Simulated scan of single mutants.
Amino acid sequence: MDQFIELFKHLINPQWIIDHGGLYLLLLIIFAETGLFVGFFLPGDSLLFIAGIYVEALSKSFYNIPFVVIMVMIALAGVLGNYVGFWFGRKSGPLLFNKKDTFFFKQKHLYQARDFYEKYGGGAIFLARFLPIIRTFAPIIAGVVQMERKRFMFFNIVSSFCWVFSMMLAGHYLDKAFPTLKEHLELIVIILIVITTLPVLIKLFFGKRKPSTS
């Protein structure tokens, strides 16, 4: 049990992922976090941001491939992850609404994603890519409601490339502008988590408030 807890701590630590897993683990994390419901707890935004900071080290560890190729590979991992979630939703998604809560699965996350999707329609696939937890379940919900495959893939591809490129380029160029950025990674991760999860928290606590009755 202690080993499992220790592994869990490592998997939510972007710095550990970059240092010990390199590009291989990074691709796996992005794939899982963007389409497998068991991956909702994994870091996404902060991992990409830090990957942008350490992209030179990632390049050296993987045949010195260019920065843009690394971003494309990660974006494709996100596309594939979302598609797997979409496929899973089409095949067995309706059963999830009757599934009991477990450590890795909470029905409230599924309902939050469904509400988000119903509110924003096809654009939810794009918007959800930038929101933790929601991005894990949005493609599954798209499959559950039988979204047209070509339409889903359009939003899936565009959103993945925009998400990956924006986060990694932000980390890369901010590191160039502020060389001491690496000394404050823990603070940066906390700030990113707060910024990206704030819309989810607002939706969770205030999105379903009942109107007052006079």
Rank of each mutant, 00 (worst) to 15 (best):
F41Y: 13
F41K: 06
L42K: 02
P43H: 11
P43N: 09
S46C: 07
F49K: 00
G52W: 00
G52A: 02
G52L: 00
Y54P: 05
S59K: 07
S59M: 12
S59V: 05
K60G: 02
K60A: 14
Y63A: 03
Y63F: 08
I65G: 00
P66T: 00
F67I: 00
I70Y: 10
M71V: 02
V72R: 00
V72C: 05
L76T: 06
A77N: 06
L80W: 06
L80R: 03
G81A: 05
G81M: 05
V84T: 11
F88W: 05
F88G: 04
G89C: 11
R90W: 01
R90N: 07
K91W: 09
S92M: 12
P94S: 06
L96P: 05
F104P: 07
K106M: 04
K106V: 02
K108Q: 12
H109Q: 05
H109A: 12
L110M: 14
Y111C: 04
Y111K: 08
Q112V: 04
A113N: 03
A113F: 13
A113S: 08
F116G: 12
Y117C: 11
Y117G: 02
E118D: 11
K119P: 01
Y120C: 12
G122T: 00
G123E: 07
G123Y: 02
A124Y: 10
A124C: 06
I125L: 04
F126P: 02
L127S: 04
A128Q: 02
R129P: 06
F130I: 05
F130G: 08
I134N: 00
A138M: 01
P139D: 07
I140M: 14
I141Q: 01
I141W: 08
A142S: 11
A142D: 09
V144Q: 05
M147C: 03
M147F: 10
E148F: 09
R149T: 13
R151M: 07
N156V: 00
N156S: 09
C162L: 08
W163G: 06
W163R: 05
V164W: 15
S166E: 03
M168R: 08
L169M: 08
L169I: 15
L169S: 14
H172P: 01
H172K: 14
Y173L: 07
L174T: 00
K176A: 15
A177G: 15
